[in-house]
């Protein structure tokens, strides 16, 4: 009797603070988002307590469908490029001589540790019309007029790939490192070519890393509004910027809430697909 009481107190004291914290600052705010998505915005940028479904109907306008399509496409491009660039890179690090490996992993972590906005700002300096790269190219005589690199869709893609590459490489590295090398030897002993060994043995065995890396790249990329703010032109609008605008300039909170709910639904669908093939533990 006393023991079970003590255990209950123990559980309450240890797990309680986390439950309270996440309840107050995560669950309740998310419920607020759902609530406000059914309310009407008023002329002063505030919200009136009048139930409506108009905010949801607005989603199906061509303008917003295009924003979603453009954003999903950008995130997909980002993820695919990160995988293509990141996989060989992760493979090289994972198979590097033992002596070098800790240093190489450390070198990969260092940029990860510095603020992503400061690093994006570094790219901004590099790509400007009067920037380092243009100046350099003109100086060595490859071009006579500066190239228009910054404030383009390409610059946004570069910024996204740059910011998210470590997120792809780390899970890939973990799963490539776990590869049992005797299997590779077995494959080559049995006469498999290098390409065959890769497509039939290495790739299937490192799938958990590929899935985890893709998820960790794709989902955050949907919300990185500051990269398109710093690198992109005004031409293409992405979901992150659209949501941000609803809360800052347009002051249409209900619409912003609806857009966020769509973002959550997209995430949930992706996670649902993911948990069919991988486990959450691979991600942490």
């Amino acid at each position: 009797m006393i023991k079970s009481f003590k255990k209950r107190i123990g559980a309450l004291v240890t797990v309680g603070p986390t439950v309270l914290w996440l309840g107050f600052f995560l669950m309740i705010p998310l419920i607020y988002v759902i609530g406000i998505s059914f309310l009407t915005k008023n002329a002063y940028g505030g919200v009136d307590f009048i139930f409506t479904l108009d905010n949801y109907k607005a989603l199906f306008s061509n303008e917003y469908v295009k924003v979603f399509a453009d954003s999903l496409w950008l995130s997909l491009e980002t993820t695919v490029i990160c995988l293509i660039v990141g996989y060989p890179f992760a493979y090289i690090i994972a198979n590097a001589p033992k002596k070098w490996k800790p240093a190489l992993v450390m070198l990969l972590m260092l940029p990860f540790w510095t603020n992503s906005l400061i690093r994006t700002y570094g790219w901004n300096t590099l790509l400007r019309t009067e920037g380092v790269i243009n100046h350099f190219l003109q100086w060595i005589g490859i071009i006579d007029k500066p190239l228009n690199m910054l404030y383009t869709d390409g610059a946004v893609l570069l910024g996204m790939v740059y910011a998210l590459l470590p997120f792809t490489v780390l899970p890939l590295h973990t799963s490539i490192e776990k590869l049992d090398h005797s299997l590779l030897e077995a494959a080559s002993d049995l006469g498999a070519s290098k390409v065959h060994t890769f497509t039939r043995v290495i790739l299937p065995l490192t799938m958990p890393g590929i899935f985890a890396g893709s998820i960790q790249t794709f989902i955050p990329s949907l919300g990185f509004f500051f990269i398109s703010d710093m690198m992109g032109g005004a031409k293409t609008m992405y979901i992150g910027n659209l949501i941000k605008n609803q809360f800052l300039s347009a002051r249409n909170w209900p619409l912003g809430a609806v857009l966020s709910i769509v973002l959550i639904i997209i995430t949930l669908i992706i996670m649902k697909l993911y948990t069919r093939v991988g486990s959450l533990e691979d991600m942490a």
């Binding site: 988002v33 919300g223 809360f247 809430a257 966020s260 973002l263 996670m271």
Partner: peptide, 10 residues
């Protein structure tokens, strides 16, 4: 799992 942006506006 949820995008930071959603959590931020929440």
């Amino acid at each position: 799992v949820i995008p930071e942006l959603v959590f931020a506006i929440a």
